[in-house]
């Protein structure tokens, strides 16, 4: 048993070859941005984006080399978005602000509909359709059961369908 632990610790150091952080930044910045845009709106997205990558950079050396960096980054982005929504929740006008701040494009109707969703539904929709995450990864990101994340996604899509 001890030797197996030892072996795996040793092989961890051998396979401990994370790519330069810049790789993650280039590969995933657009999806992180899109997820945040869907969750907090285009104006707050910049701050949440900077907070997301700063938290990721600080924690990066502890990331296992064989884990999925994309799901990891989107989970951090989700947490930063939720923090932001909590901070601004007392203003209560969040949904209205978000609907109002986007330019009147064909996507405008979609954005106001997305902004009208409950945060958990918004997160499930964003992580699924922007991040392409599995239900298990979405559940882990949101911090709920897989079943609850499926339900959030389903309810979110229903609500959007009704409005669009």
């Amino acid at each position: 048993m001890a030797s197996r632990i030892e072996r795996s610790a040793r092989s961890n150091t051998v396979t401990h070859s994370l790519p330069p952080f810049q790789d993650l930044l280039e590969r995933h910045s657009e999806d992180v941005w899109r997820t945040l845009r869907a969750m907090v709106g285009v104006h707050a997205a910049e701050d949440c984006f900077q907070e997301t990558f700063l938290a990721a950079l600080r924690a990066y050396p502890r990331l296992r080399a064989d884990s999925a960096p994309r799901a990891w980054l989107l989970t951090i982005a989700h947490n930063k978005a939720i923090d932001h929504l909590r901070r601004t929740a007392r203003e209560h006008t969040q949904a209205i602000e978000m609907a109002g701040e986007d330019p009147p494009t064909p996507d405008g109707a979609v954005w106001s509909a997305v902004a009208g969703l409950a945060p958990r539904q918004r997160a499930a929709v964003a992580l699924r359709y922007i991040g392409d995450l599995s239900h298990r990864e979405i559940a882990a990101a949101i911090g709920c059961s897989e079943e609850a994340s499926r339900r959030s996604l389903h309810d979110g899509l229903e609500a959007l369908r009704r409005q669009l």
């Binding site: 930044l25 657009e30 990558f53 996507d107 979609v110 929709v125 359709y129």
Partner: peptide
């Protein structure tokens, strides 16, 4: 998945590249 939703959610985000550059310079 209805189209306008997928279209809006996945719309290109050129701001992301500038934001990534700002991040790297500051880091």
């Amino acid at each position: 998945m209805n189209d306008p939703l997928a279209h809006a959610l996945r719309a290109p985000a050129p701001e992301a590249h500038a934001a990534a550059r700002r991040f790297a310079d500051r880091a």
